[in-house]
Design a protein around this nucleic acid. Sequence first.
RNA 1: GGAGAAAUGGCAGAGUGGUCGAAUGCGGCAGUCUUGAAAACUGUUGAGGGUCACACCUCCGGGGGUUCGAAUCCCUCUUUCUCCGCCA
Length: 423
Amino acid sequence: MLQVPFIRENKELVIERLAKRNIDATQMINDVISFDEDRRRIQTELDNTLAESNSLSKEIGNLFKSGEAQKANLLKERTVQLKETSKELAEALNNKSNELNELLYKIPNVPNKLVPSGNSDLDNEEIFKEGEIPVLHENALPHWELAKKYDIIDFELGNKITGAGFPVYKGKGARLQRALIAYFLDKNTAAGYTEYQLPLLVNEASGFGTGQLPDKEGQMYHVTEDNLYLIPTAEVPGTNIFRDVVLNESELPIGITGYTPCFRREAGSYGAHVRGLNRLHQFDKVEILRVEHPSKSYEALDGMVNHVKTILKELELPYRILRLCGGDLGFTSALTYDFELFSTAQDRWLEISSVSNFETFQANRLKLRFKNSDGKNELAHTLNGSSLALPRVLAGILENYQTKDGIVIPKALQAYTGFNIID
RNA sequence: GGAGAAAUGGCAGAGUGGUCGAAUGCGGCAGUCUUGAAAACUGUUGAGGGUCACACCUCCGGGGGUUCGAAUCCCUCUUUCUCCGCCA
């Protein structure tokens, strides 16, 4: 969530930048400012009431001690009144604060100045492209056909066991999955990220911390019995490591990486584009996550983009990088780069990584701060990205590396798979 | 799942109705001494709201209650520890 003082001091800029997301935030921003004024006014009133009550209580104590019970009892009457007043004010304050917070939860992050205006993914800006698009043999197949042909992924079986979107990987397919996970983790740790194994279920507070709650609970599987949520991404448990944390400036930057399965309900997304591995309810992902000093976060974002690039280059896959436009930018992000892999057999680009700088948007909700050189607590910047999401990378490998003799394993992966062809 | 104990500042740990945002120790920061460091000594050191700055207010696991007044008493929830049961 945005910080109220920031909104107050940069009202015009905030409205102007939010317009990149095609929203007119004027009303909301004005409301935030006026709710906050109300809140502070009530707070002051309450504080004064409590201050009087506190000093009277002290006086009463002293009077009792010096044996002036009658005087004390007189004062008691006044405190009863004050108690009544403060109760009312406390309730009003609570209501106003809730009203303000609910509004703040609805306002997305302020886009960075680099974010292009636009309505949809069509307006995203391509900023980089690399890798050769292979020329496939005549009877090239999409990955779901390949999966069947070589018996490495069984969608029907997943259907039987659980339902659509829960594929079963077998034999070399399963081994390839494990190889990719190990390979990604090795690349990330070599780049300085510390490996974590994180819980796959999180509590409500964590859901709030990263912004899945209160608005997007429909996207997560909810275990109502214990009020826990299955994670939609390692970002949730990973970022919540830092909830209510005050770091020393010298501890920055922090980089962590972790492999987790991800669970997404994906309510309402059906159709041709969700075939095979393109969109799943359960999928594997290796995530990278950074906590940065505000002055260094954009440098770090570039660093993350470069890191993901080196992996795709090593896998020799054709990809491009997009700078997301305002209309396509995630709620919590200030600037996002998407990586898309070209699926030759499907003749379309598949999103395989999304690298974002959230600036203080997450940190504000998380209360993730560091002690700056003035000794003051200051919100840190958080960033994260996939490095990488498995299913579509797998789809890309299957499709782009298919030959008449089978699917060739990229060189960089062969040490991990222990075989160099799926046939 | 059953029984018992506990939850206090970065950490350890005192405090059982007003003099407590909280002793003391460790740690952190600044200084004295030192060529430098260590040791020793001195000072300083929680967070949030509010203010130009002060004042002032809130916070002793969360929520509620008793009281003029709660870290302290009561209720409730959560978590941790110990023992028993079950178990990869």
